[in-house]
Amino acid sequence: MVKLVVATTVDPASICPAKELLAKPGWQPGPTLDQSIRSFSNGDVRLLEHNKGIVEEDDLDQRWENATGQTVDEVIFLSKHTAVSNRPALTIHPIGVPHLKEGDVPPQGGKPGWAAPPNPRMGPWMILLNKIAESHNLIPEFEITFEATHHGPVTTKPTMFIEIGSTEEYWRRLDAAQVVALLVWEGLGLGGGPPVGNWSRYHMQVFPLYPSNILGSSFG
């Protein structure tokens, strides 16, 4: 069972945290998927990098399984976040467009009526994100927010997005990228500690969601 972390080079809020994550020890080059998507391996985590918009690569979980024979148990996307407020924010959210009807055209990926299973780590990771952001002095400048689902790409495994918002100034912030990288590093137990939010039915850790707002915003 492996965990996919997905980043894109065309989004600074995606590739910058990925680079910070890859700068930590233990990573090894992995196979190339579809001749264009690079991968790196660290324990049971696979970091994938592609060159398209983050919502444009559907079915990465199934494609990875078909190419490698490794079963994917969750997917985590790194991305930018946009909001009309332009307020700096760090957000987590599930994905899907279940509100769209057949025949509607999803403006930001996915397919009408579809939603990926929510990644059960989201609750405990909101708490961890708040803790790490505080330790890096990003609070109160950055809002820590649980966001509503509103885009793709299509997956079938438990999935979540982790985003940096809300303008290019913040998408490129090194301290924000470091916070997201550390969230993934600690949250998946890559640093040697236990994973946060172990969500097997035998070891499920139950945490309340960190109080947050639902932003009326969109993926950029």
Rank of each mutant, 00 (worst) to 15 (best):
L138Y: 04
E49T: 12
E169C: 07
G110D: 07
L33S: 05
E147A: 10
S200R: 13
F77D: 01
P112K: 09
P25M: 02
P140Y: 10
D11P: 05
E163L: 00
M160F: 05
A133F: 00
I144R: 01
F142K: 04
S85Y: 08
A7R: 08
M126S: 15
S85I: 02
D61Q: 03
P120M: 05
K157E: 11
E168R: 02
E147T: 04
D73H: 12
A148G: 14
A7F: 04
A23I: 01
F40A: 06
I214Y: 14
L22A: 06
L22Y: 12
P29T: 10
G109M: 08
G110C: 03
G26N: 02
D175V: 10
N137E: 11
S135T: 14
F219A: 05
E65Y: 13
I54R: 00
E186Y: 09
V55R: 13
V72F: 01
L47M: 11
D11V: 03
T91Q: 07
E56T: 08
E74N: 06
F219H: 13
S166F: 03
R173H: 10
S36R: 15
N137F: 01
A18V: 09
N130M: 12
S135F: 07
L190C: 07
K157F: 07
E20S: 10
T91Y: 04
I54K: 01
N42D: 13
N137P: 02
I127Q: 14
K101Q: 15
V10H: 03
Y202M: 11
I164A: 00
V180G: 00
E74Y: 01
A7S: 12
T68C: 06
E168V: 03
G30Q: 13
P117R: 07
I95G: 02
N51W: 11
D59V: 01
S200A: 06
P158S: 04
V180Y: 01
A148Q: 14
N119Q: 10
R63V: 07
E147G: 03
I139P: 04
E168K: 03
V97L: 03
I76D: 11
T32A: 08
Q28F: 05
V6N: 07
W114L: 00
H203M: 11
A23D: 14
T156M: 05
I92T: 05
F77C: 00
V84D: 15
A18I: 06
I144M: 01
P211A: 00
V206W: 11
Q35N: 15
L138W: 06
